[in-house]
Structure formats: C-alpha cells, structure tokens
Design a binder for these strands. Structure first.
Length: 211
DNA sequence: ATCCCGAGGG
DNA sequence: CCCTCTGGAT
C-alpha cells in the first residue's frame, strides 16, 4: 500500500462522509463528557435514549458531583457497564468541581487523569468539544484503519500515531468521524459490505476486488 | 452469538 | 498481556 493509494482512500472517505459528526446529544462540555463515558461498549442510540431525561434533571458537574452511585446507577443501567460508569462519572464530576472550577479542562493530560477517561474519550472531548486537533481511536477507527491499510497497528495508540502522520492536523477530527461512520455503515466488524463500499477497488482487505 | 464511539485493574 | 464490567440491538 503506497502513499498514493492512502491519500486516494482518504479523499474518497472525505467526499463520502463529509460533514458527518457525532450522533451523541449534549448541551455542554460536561454533558459531552458524560455522554462519551456512557458510550463505552454500547451505541449512540442507547446513550441518547437516556441522556435527555438525565441532563434535564442533572445538568452540570456540580449536579453529578452531588449524586451517589446508588442514585445514578438505575438512571444509566440500560447503557451497560453501569456500576463502573456511575462511579467514574461521579468521581470525574467531583474532580472537575474541586480542581477545575466545575469546567471541563481543555488539556489532554488533565482529561486523562479524570476517573474513567482514557485516551479515546479525552481526544473526543478535545476535538468535538473544544475544536482542538485530536484523532480519537475507538474500535471502529482501529479496525477500519487497519483494513484500509491506512495503519498497520496492534494498539489504538499506534493507530493514532500512524493516522496523525498521514492526515493534516486540521482534518484529524473530521477523519475520526469519516472512519467511525464508514465502520458503522459499511466496513462493519462482522460482515463488511464490500460490494457497496466506495473503496472497494482500493482496499487491500477486499478479497473480491476487480483490479 | 456477536457487537456496540473503553478503561482500569491484576 | 489478560480479564472484568454490562444491557440492549441485531
């Protein structure tokens, strides 16, 4: 896979998925943080199904900091992993109140120190929340980047490094969404829809390609 | 049965 | 590196 083909793939991804953005609903940076924390190992619809009511009742970091796990758990249980998520969301809310005046910090080092916030979540907050260039690598980005030959990575960290070297900084946030949506709609984990893929003839993982 | 915009702990 | 946490959709 040469650099020429990689740039061609990126161009087609951009044309196909231009303008795509997060499906998560949120009304503030802190709500974005909660929504992304809830999204682990579930899908956007499951998160959006509960955050409407949740954020109407509890909107700010201070609101969540005042909750106990026993209070929050039943409100988020439908998203799965709910004990860890409840504990982490409350602990992160308290740390944000104590250390950052109730505002989500615009700094990756600080974000990653929040309980339950790892590299992927931190990068989503930076790029989607603050407009700071960052390329979040989730399960879709990891899988799709490897399949398309945009990366040859064994870990999400390697994927991030390799993609960032390939893509201009101002497109990191957009590229994250191109790969997410391509992974969700076409390049699925189980049964990739290669026959309706705009990259069918460029993808090194497509066995049935015509060229 | 498998996957979903992961992270922390052992 | 592996395991665990977890419900809901397909």
């Amino acid at each position: 896979m040469g650099k020429q083909e990689q740039q061609q793939i990126l161009k087609i991804l951009e044309e196909t998925y231009r303008g795509s953005e997060t499906a998560l609903k949120f009304g503030s940076l802190f709500q974005l943080l909660v929504a992304v924390m809830l999204s682990a190992q579930t899908n956007d619809n499951q998160v959006n199904a509960i955050t409407g009511q949740l954020f109407a009742r509890y909107a700010t970091a201070a609101d969540f900091a005042s909750l106990t796990p026993a209070e929050l758990e039943p409100l988020i249980s439908s998203c799965g992993l709910y004990k860890n998520k409840a504990k982490n969301i409350i602990a992160a809310a308290r740390m944000i109140c104590e250390k950052y005046g109730g505002e989500v910090p615009a700094d990756k080092e600080a974000l990653v120190k929040l309980p339950g916030v790892g590299g992927k979540t931190a990068n989503v907050i930076l790029s989607v929340g603050f407009g700071i260039p960052a390329l979040a690598v989730d399960t879709h980005v990891f899988r799709v980047a490897n399949r398309l030959g945009l990366a040859a990575a064994k870990t999400p960290e390697q994927t991030e490094t390799q993609l960032c070297a390939l893509i201009p900084k101002q497109q990191w946030g957009d590229a994250h969404h191109w790969l997410i949506w391509h992974g969700r709609k076409v390049c699925k984990a189980q049964h990739p829809q290669c026959n309706q893929c705009p990259l069918e003839n460029l993808c090194p993982s497509n066995q049935g390609q015509s060229n």
